[in-house]
Each structure stands twice: as structure tokens, then as C-alpha cells.
Amino acid sequence: MEVRTIKVFTTVDNINLHTQVVDMSMTYGQQFGPTYLDGADVTKIKPHNSHEGKTFYVLPNDDTLRVEAFEYYHTTDPSFLGRYMSALNHTKKWKYPQVNGLTSIKWADNNCYLATALLTLQQIELKFNPPALQDAYYRARAGEAANFCALILAYCNKTVGELGDVRETMSYLFQHANLDSCKRVLNVVCKTCGQQQTTLKGVEAVMYMGTLSYEQFKKGVQIPCTCGKQATKYLVQQESPFVMMSAPPAQYELKHGTFTCASEYTGNYQCGHYKHITSKETLYCIDGALLTKSSEYKGPITDVFYKENSYTTTIK
């Protein structure tokens, strides 16, 4: 009895394709271990004539594949690729409408935090270190965002349907971005203890939790000093293409032309909904596939993004 075979390709990165001759009487799992086709788990399936010449994702289970996976995804987590594939199996079914010149995501599976993050990423200057993220990001900007969303979920250790947080998501993504040249110098002034300067680099240099107003941050924000008295913390120097200011959701007025974009969060910790506000020729609110415009805006804002380049204080 002759062994019926077909020729397929296996890959971990969709760049390096490895030619395989597979036995049609055995499952993919018996031949390769966990195997995925377009995100779908085909591990328990036997090869079919229609699979001839198709590319299958496999887990990096030998040295060659491990090197290829690390170079593309910059992670050695053995569960990463499987999590990416199972997320992709959902995100490829989502709709990605162009809204006001940006790629958004039609609401499904509690994905409003991903839509808000995706919209924000198209408006701030950011370059990702893992080629996987950078490639998928370019495709997302062009309207094909399924891979990018699935990668975000995998890097953030999230599953489809789980509630997510924009600030946490951005923080994970910033860790995989090139923020080497970003720098922030802060000064804390206390009447009792004097003053202390701190220099922050990388992710810490672009994120701040405690106030939404970048102007206020430049002037000074009140913080408790270690001595128990009130101290003032203010920005001395900022070198970065953008800054992200966050605070627990509270009524906040966004003035046209003073910011790049913002995240609105309605609801409580267990259950809520994100919308995205962007400042173009007027203010726009993007909620999944829905767009509304207004000249002014007041609502429960939790993150505001500002364009920056270089700032030095005039406070002496």
C-alpha cells in the first residue's frame, strides 16, 4: 500500500517557510505537534488534498525554529505562539472599519479597549522592536488589523473576551517599542525636605499616572512627601515624541487643539466601556464603527496623549 502524501510549508514567522512532505494517514499533531492554519487549530486533523502548498504555523520545537521565533517575536515564552494563534482565530472574524481616516474595530468580545489602543497607536510616533509587531502594525494602518490585535493580546497575556485596560495595554506595548531616546527629568520640591531631581528613561519617561493635564504637570502637581507634608512635583525636561497622561476616570474637559487623542471610560472596574476622542479640525468621538463630532467635550476621561518633541522648564 502506497503512502499518500502532500507537500506543505511549516513556519513560526510566515517569513521562513520549511518544506514538509506530510503523510495523509496521520494527523498534523502526530507529525508536527500543535499546528495552526489561519489561526485555526488543526492539530487533530489529517492532511487533505486542499492543504497542498498551504502554510501551517507550528510551535518552535527545534533550534532553527526557536531562533526564527525569537528573532521575529522577541520572546522565548513557549506558550506565546499558541496564544497568538488562538487569538487570531477570533480577531480574523472582527470587522476593521476605516473611521475618520483611522483603522478602528467594530465592537465584539469586549474589544473596546483594543480599538482605543489601536486608534491611539496610529496617532503617536512609535516604532516597535519585534519585527512581528512592526509588520502587523503597518498592515493594521492599511486596514488589516487582525494579526496586530492578536499579537497585542498575546504580548499582554490576554484572551479574547476578557476586559482590558488601555493604560495597561499601552504599557505592555511600550515595553516592546523603541523608547531608548526618551528621557524625563522631574523635580520634587518640599518646604521641609528641599528639592530632589529624578531622571527617568524609556517607558517611565512617557507615562504618568495622577493627572490628565500635561500643562498642569509642567506647572506642578501636589504629591505627598515622605515627611508627610505636601510637596510639588513638576516637569523639568521632556525628550520624547509623545507623552501619555493618565488618571482614574473623572469628568474632564478636553479643549480642541490642546491634545492629540484621549480615552474615555464609562462604567466601573468590573464592567465598563471605552471610547476614543481625537482632536482634528474639530473633536471626534470614535466608538467602534461609530463616529460623532463636537466642538467641545466633557466626560469621564482616563488617558490623554500629547505630541511632544523637546521641553525644558522655565521655572527657576
Rank of each mutant, 00 (worst) to 15 (best):
G82M: 15
K298C: 15
T211M: 08
G164S: 05
Y73A: 04
V189L: 06
L126M: 07
D287T: 06
T266D: 09
C227L: 01
T260Q: 13
V21N: 13
K201I: 09
L254I: 02
K233T: 09
V22F: 01
L235E: 01
E215H: 11
G228Q: 08
K106P: 03
D287V: 04
T169V: 15
L290K: 14
F148N: 01
K106H: 13
V21M: 13
L254G: 06
N49V: 12
R4L: 11
S295H: 07
K298V: 15
P248M: 12
P47E: 04
N157D: 06
P131K: 08
P97L: 14
G267V: 15
P60A: 11
G228L: 02
L163E: 14
E162G: 08
G164H: 03
K255V: 14
C149Q: 00
Y265I: 04
N16R: 05
Y269G: 15
A205P: 05
R83A: 06
R66C: 10
V203L: 09
F9L: 10
S79E: 00
A250G: 11
G228W: 01
E204S: 11
T312F: 11
Y274H: 00
D180I: 05
D180G: 09
Q270K: 12
G101L: 02
F242K: 00
Y28E: 10
L65H: 08
G228H: 01
T10S: 08
N100I: 02
S240V: 02
T198I: 15
Q222A: 12
V160T: 04
K218F: 02
G143W: 02
P60Q: 11
T35Q: 04
E125F: 01
D135W: 08
V206D: 03
S86L: 09
M170C: 04
S181K: 12
K233E: 11
G29Y: 08
L179Q: 01
T302K: 01
C271L: 15
L119D: 06
T258I: 09
D180P: 02
T226W: 06
P300H: 12
E144G: 07
Y36H: 05
I105H: 06
T5C: 13
R167Y: 00
M85I: 04
P224S: 12
K191W: 05
L114Q: 03
S25M: 10
Y138W: 14
L65K: 07
M209I: 15
H48N: 12
V221H: 06
S263N: 10
K316T: 14
Q238D: 02
E68P: 04
T278F: 09
R83C: 08
E308A: 08
V22H: 06
T35G: 07
D38N: 10
P34H: 13
R4N: 11
K280W: 05
K316W: 15
V243S: 01
V99Q: 07
L133T: 03
N178L: 06
S79Q: 15
F128I: 04
W94E: 06
V21W: 11
E253D: 10
F80K: 02
K316G: 15
V22T: 09
K307N: 09
Y155A: 04
T11V: 01
D63T: 12
A262L: 06
N187R: 11
N100C: 15
T282N: 08
N61G: 09
A231W: 01
Q197D: 09
L81Q: 09
G267I: 12
P78D: 14
K229N: 15
F242I: 01
A115D: 02
Q31C: 13
Y252T: 13
G39F: 10
R139V: 03
N16S: 08
Q238L: 02
L65M: 13
Q237G: 05
R167T: 05
A132P: 06
K233D: 01
Q238W: 01
R83Q: 08
F259Q: 00
N100A: 13
A136T: 05
S294H: 15
V22S: 09
K307T: 15
Q134D: 09
S79H: 13
S246I: 03
Y269T: 15
K54W: 12
A289T: 11
T292S: 10
E168T: 15
L121Y: 03
V221D: 04
G164I: 00
R4C: 14
L186F: 14
A289P: 08
S295F: 07
D287A: 03
Y96L: 07
Y208R: 13
C225H: 08
N309G: 10
D180K: 10
P47I: 10
P300G: 00
V12A: 09
K201D: 06
T103H: 06
K54C: 14
G161D: 07
A40E: 14
C261Q: 02
A132D: 01
N100W: 07
L151M: 05
A132L: 05
Q230V: 13
I301L: 09
M244N: 02
H273V: 05
L173N: 02
Y36W: 15
D287L: 01
C190N: 02
K127L: 06
S213C: 09
C285H: 10
L212E: 02
Y269E: 15
V206C: 04
T64V: 12
A177R: 04
T211Q: 07
E308F: 09
L114I: 11
E71W: 03
D41P: 11
N110Q: 09
C225V: 00
T159A: 14
M26Y: 10
C225A: 05
E296Y: 13
L65A: 09
M170I: 09
K127A: 11
S213N: 13
Q122E: 02
K93V: 09
A146I: 00
